[in-house]
Structure formats: C-alpha cells, structure tokens
Amino acid sequence: MHALIVVSHPLDTSLTHGVAASIAEGITAADPANTFEIADLTQEGFDPTYSGADIAGFLKTATVPEDILAEQARIDGADALVLVFPIYWWSMPALLKGWIDRVFSNGWAYEETAEGAVVKKLGHLPVHIIGLGAGGKSLYDRHGYTDAFNAQIAHGIFDYCGAPVVTNEMLLMPELGEPKACFDAARNIGRSVFQPAYAE
C-alpha cells in the first residue's frame, strides 16, 4: 500500500514537517511493505495560482496543464492521500488551497454534466486530514471552527468528489502540550492509515 503525504509549510524544520515524518514512520511501522511519498509543496515550487489555463481545463476547452496532470498521476498512484498543514486564519495555507483548487479539477475529481449534475469520481481514494493548531479545542468549538473545518474541508472538498475522509484530526498544542506528544499522535495516525484494508 502506498500513501501520498502532502505537506504545506515553508520550513522543513517545522512541527508540520515533523508530524508528516511521524505519520510516515507509523505507515511503515504498521507494515514494512507499505510505502509513502512526501510531497513538500514549498520545496517542489508548486504554483498555486489558478490561471486561465486552469479555467480552460475546467471548461474542457483545453487539456489541464502538464504540472496538474503530474500531480493527478501521483494521486492516482496512491492508495491513500494524507494532508498535513498548519491552520492559518481558521483554514489551510494558501499554497495547499491552491493545490486543491488546481489539482482537483473537473473531469478528474468530479464531473459536471450538461444537466447540472455532479458525478463524484474519487470514491476509491481514502483521505486523511491532519491540521495543526495553536488554539485549544474549547476555542475551536466556541467559535464554531470545528464545524467550519468539517464543512469547508471534509465535506466541501472531499465529499463533493466522493473521496471518503477516514481521518479528520486537529492536533492542538494546548491539549498535546509538547511536540513529542504531537509526534506520538501522528505515528498512531500513520499506523491506522491502511487499517481498514488490513481489517478486510
């Protein structure tokens, strides 16, 4: 089984990158035959700008850009997609949002029919969402962010495409207390990434 772990943080020494590495450790600890690829969007220089070429791809007046075809091929080659990111202004970083805007395109992630119906095309892709936050759970709950996180990301993006969200986790430092606890939680998430497949 192969996981694509997509990371959005400008510093490779960040807690976010440490969590991604810990998830990868958990994936291989669960089964040494498991593999993973970490896609560091900053290091790879991914362009998040939704351009005229992307619009043409959406309208199906042209093929989607080559860089997006390459990203889609990486996802197609994975048995699970894992997103790891810091929570910025109650949402994901702009770089990761731009990756989703461009990569999850009409015709690949979903299909808009002439009658206005939506065909969900990613039912085969389990998704694991891991956001890192500095605020506590009570703060997120009190301001409605927990519900907003679920509505915007889990439902608004992945349910729209039919991709089942297996993990939807916010690792919040006030509860975890220290980076080690965050890494331990991430390893546990990694160990469970392919657990449903093993259970079958």
Rank of each mutant, 00 (worst) to 15 (best):
L95E: 00
E169V: 10
G133P: 01
C161Q: 01
K180S: 09
E169F: 09
G144C: 06
G131Q: 07
F183W: 13
L122C: 05
E111Q: 13
E115L: 11
Y198H: 06
I100G: 01
M170H: 08
R191K: 11
Y160S: 06
G131D: 06
T146S: 13
E169R: 15
Y110K: 10
Y110V: 11
K120F: 05
D141H: 10
A186S: 09
G156C: 13
V119I: 14
A181Y: 12
L122R: 10
S105A: 15
Y145M: 07
I153L: 14
C182S: 12
Y88S: 11
A163R: 08
W99E: 03
G123L: 07
E111R: 15
A197I: 01
G162L: 09
Y198M: 04
L95C: 01
A186C: 12
G107P: 13
E169I: 06
A181V: 02
E111N: 15
T113D: 07
W90S: 05
P93H: 02
W108F: 11
F183M: 14
G131P: 00
A181E: 11
P174Y: 13
N106T: 14
A114M: 11
N188F: 06
Y198E: 08
L125Q: 09
G156H: 09
D184Q: 14
Y160V: 04
T113E: 08
G156S: 07
S105D: 14
G190Y: 10
A181R: 13
P86F: 05
T146G: 04
I87G: 00
P164D: 04
V118A: 04
A117H: 08
A114K: 15
P126N: 10
T113G: 13
L132A: 02
I100E: 06
E175N: 12
N188P: 04
P196C: 02
W89P: 00
A114R: 13
I157G: 09
A181M: 10
P174F: 09
I157F: 11
G133R: 08
G133E: 03
Q152P: 03
I87W: 01
I129R: 05
H128Y: 01
G177E: 08
N150H: 15
L139Y: 08
F194R: 02
H124N: 06
F194C: 02
G136L: 03
V118C: 06
E178P: 04
I153R: 06
P174L: 09
A181S: 14
A185N: 04
R191G: 11
P179N: 08
G190A: 12
F149S: 11
L171F: 14
G144D: 09
N150D: 11
A154S: 15
L96H: 03
H155Q: 15
Q195S: 07
W99C: 03
W99V: 01
K137D: 00
W99I: 00
L95S: 02
